[in-house]
Amino acid sequence: MSQIHITTTINGDETEYLCEADETLLDVLRDHLDMTGSKEGCGTGDCGACSVVVDGRLVCSCLMLAAEAEGRAIETIEGMGQGDQLHPLQQKFLEHAALQCGICTPGILVAAKNLLERNPNPSEEEVRYWLAGNLCRCTGYDKIIRAVMDTAADMRGAA
């Protein structure tokens, strides 16, 4: 089977890879590109642990074929902090202890960042609905929601 050659942009860097037609973007990120921040919790679109942003839209990378990425702009958890400089959301997640095992955390951070870029002042209800596709078996969600609300308030203050 001949592989498909894809040129795409990941976290601002032009990236090339070869993939099979049936490989997902998540497979390629984790297994070919060594970007293991995106997690596979279910592989069926239910848990959100694989969340990435493609051309500005939040999607599950487990439900997107790697071959679809040609010419797109992809953002993953690896692009969130700048070196040692954490993104404000990452910092707040630490302060609020909004994670335990951490499997859901990359997906939730990617999803929350996308929300705050679209809506800097979300209500708690809006945050909860936006993150409804990100499952967490540990925290009970409350600390996650508080961390996102607190980040939003801080970022509005700083802006």
């Binding site: 679109g45 969340s51 939040l58 599950c60 439900l63 997107m64 999803a111 929300l115 990100n134």
Partner: peptide, 9 residues
């Protein structure tokens, strides 16, 4: 339909 992520597609 589904979550934010599903609605993106």
């Amino acid at each position: 339909i589904g979550s934010t992520q599903i609605q993106g597609r």
